[in-house]
Write a protein that binds this DNA or RNA. Structure first.
Length: 614
RNA sequence: GCGCCCGUAGCUCAAUUGGAUAGAGUGCUGGCCUCCGAAGCCAGAGGUUGUGGGUUCGAUUCCCGCCGGGCGUGCCA
């Protein structure tokens, strides 16, 4: 409420001349917590009283005496001062209608940014030859939602998928597949991601000596046969690892045969993963892929640069960057000359700042990486890689950390056999359950519509369940709860929108919608339920801003849930098509239309797909 | 050892970043469909915000100490 804030600042200035004209004053206007007390409240008196060493109630009284809100609100008197100095404000009814009019524009009241920024969001983070599993869910869903929030606010957003497509693990699976193809046991052109996933794991096993087995043999004396088997395994592992390392060298030197296998692995993986991104209704495309391999040629020169400028130093044969406040240095080159993921991430920061001229880098990555990012951010700052060509302000680096997905047993979410749960399986199960629920409530629906509705409902359920939790906390994945359709769920929000669309459908059928449309109908928010809904609608721009500020999509979820709730109460109490007169009906239709637009917009910002019927 | 994160109704989560009597959902008890979709609405019960101190008009929020859980921590990613 911009106007209210300005009025209060003016009143504060004339009531409290001790405050210098250049000093900033925050009027601390917020919606009332309890609707009984008012529509808005001003909490500024208390902190001001503290600043001036005065009694807060006296300060509030002085502010009220200078306050002029005649055209906006009911008169504010001393009776509206409560507790230590809260000032309660009640909007005039016609002012509320006017505010709704202003809100009902193309942008739903969201202002263009003062300074448009370029924001780079790191998200998704898949690896070659690995099936997507629940571990990828949060980075993808939350990262894309954060990206959409900034896009919605008018900023330029670049998504970056830091694909794990390089290094020894990838060399291992490349070697494994190449040798399987050579042996005629695999056909490169027919590989699926499931095949790759299997090869990845066997390659890992082939290259890892069974140390625990060795210890067991030694400790328990398991006999010469077991010992011989283990010796063979260890020897094999060493040979495999040597081959993998050989493959890594070939990759790094662009050997065409090796590169062809690697490229095929990349294509199969990315095709499958990007299909999943589409299925999840995210805006992630192959243009957003910036694999580790794309940094390979930059790492040597980058480390040399750090060395030349005295930022990196030698330590036990490795090269490290030390940073004030963090005792553990960041290793940027191993003693064997190899680079690490920290090196690649620093190169990534440099590229993102310089190539995209980014104001802000947001890393939507697992909370377990927080120490790594602290180190890497600090190192990049020290190296000057966050300085931007056209600005004296360095880019702001943030780790939007998220917690682990847990099963209902509060342990990390795994299958009974301890495997990662494939994302595709998870979604299929959600769709099957949703389909069952939809059919139950809509027996007449044909199978195809039922199926496509279930797909949307399932995606909405999964995404909303994830987004509506506080990002940094672990969250319990409960298929039962998210698909139950009752309560604070994605389907509830979809249903609110579907019910509004139903009103308009029915209105058309009965010719109750004015031919001229309702865009110019007058808002008449008189019923308490209408007023509550109107006040909630007005909070949308602030809710979006708070979501961006905190990088917390759950803020927007809370807003939308409350809006849907306000609509449900309105829907129970205020007949729309059967309203008592034409004016009321037109007003309510317009209120419904605005609510529907906002719900659809908000859900779109979260990346949640919507429906006309369900 | 050190560092970071988290402890709120039986369960799953909020609390507009220091504001009023800590709110929702779920589950439980009761009520509401000749009326725009009941996937909904209304009412009730349910709390020493892990714990002890501190800062102040005011603390779930900030500071310090404990307890409990999770995760990291110099050559994997």
């Amino acid at each position: 409420m911009l106007a209210l804030g300005e009025r209060f600042v003016a009143a504060i200035r004339s009531a409290l001349p001790d405050i210098g004209p250049s000093e900033r004053i925050d009027p601390l206007i917020s919606p009332s917590r309890q609707p009984k007390l008012g529509d808005f409240q001003c909490n500024a008196a208390m902190p001001l009283a503290k600043r001036l060493g005065r009694n807060p109630r006296e300060v509030a009284t002085a502010i009220v005496a200078q306050l002029d809100l005649t055209d906006l609100a009911e008169p504010v008197t001393e009776r509206d001062i409560a507790g230590p100095g809260f000032i309660n404000i009640r909007l005039r009814a016609e002012k509320l209608a006017e505010l709704l009019n202003q809100l009902d524009d193309e942008s739903l009241g969201v202002p263009a940014p003062d300074k448009p920024m370029t924001v780079v969001v790191d998200l998704f983070g898949v690896n070659l030859a690995k099936q997507m599993h629940v571990g990828h869910l949060r980075s993808t869903i939350i990262g894309d939602a954060i990206a959409r929030v900034f896009e919605r606010l008018g900023h330029t957003v670049v998504r970056q998928n830091h694909v794990g497509d390089w290094g020894l693990p990838i060399a291992m699976v490349t070697w494994k597949i190449a040798s399987e193809v050579d042996a005629g046991r695999a056909n490169l052109d027919a590989l699926t991601l499931d095949d790759l996933d299997r090869y990845y794991r066997t390659a890992q096993r082939d290259c890892t000596p069974d140390r625990r087995g060795l210890i067991a043999v030694e400790r328990y004396g398991l006999g010469p046969k077991a010992e011989a088997e283990l010796d063979a395994q260890v020897a094999g592992a060493h040979a495999s690892l040597a081959s993998a390392k050989d493959t890594l060298v070939k990759l790094q030197s662009h050997d065409p045969e090796t590169l062809r296998v690697w490229q095929r692995i990349r294509d199969v993986t990315m095709t499958a993963c990007l299909d999943m991104c589409r299925r999840l209704n995210t805006s992630i495309t192959d243009d957003d892929s910036a694999g580790e391999s794309s940094y390979a040629e930059e790492l040597g020169p980058l480390v040399q640069d750090l060395l030349d400028r005295g930022i990196a130093e030698e330590s036990d044969g490795a090269l490290v960057v030390r940073v004030e406040g963090i005792p553990e240095p960041t290793i940027v080159r191993k003693s064997d000359g190899g680079f690490l993921y920290a090196t690649t991430d620093i190169a990534g920061i440099r590229r993102r700042v310089q190539k995209f001229d980014a104001d802000r880098l947001i890393y939507c990555v697992d909370a377990r990486q927080s120490f790594h990012f602290r180190q890497v951010f600090a190192a990049a700052h020290r190296a000057g890689y966050t300085r931007r060509p056209g600005s004296d302000q360095p880019a702001v680096l943030e780790h939007a950390a998220f917690g682990t997905v847990l099963g209902e047993d509060n342990r990390p979410f795994k299958t009974r056999t301890g495997e990662n749960v494939r994302l595709a399986d998870l979604i299929d199960e959600a769709v099957a359950r949703a389909e069952h629920e939809v059919k139950l409530r809509n027996p007449d629906l044909d199978a195809e519509s039922c199926r496509s509705i279930a797909e949307v409902v399932a995606i909405a359920a999964i995404k909303y369940a994830d987004l509506s939790n506080d990002r940094v906390k672990d969250y319990v994945f409960s298929m039962n709860r998210m698909i139950a359709f009752e309560g604070d769920t994605g389907p509830y929000l979809l249903n609110a929108l579907v019910r509004i669309k139903g009103i308009f459908r029915k209105g058309q059928e009965r010719s109750l919608i004015p031919a001229a449309g309702i865009d110019s109908a007058q808002f008449l928010p008189e019923h308490p339920a209408e007023k509550t809904m109107a006040l909630q609608l007005l909070r949308y721009p602030a809710a979006l801003a708070a979501t961006a500020e905190s990088l917390g999509p759950h803020r927007l979820c809370v807003f939308l849930y409350e809006l849907a709730g306000a609509f449900s109460k309105f829907y129970e109490q205020c007949p729309v098509l059967a309203a008592e007169d034409e004016r009321t009906r037109a007003s309510r239709l317009r209120l419904c239309q605005l609510t529907a637009r906002m719900l659809a917009d908000g859900l779109d910002v979260l990346g949640i797909p919507t429906l006309d019927r369900m």
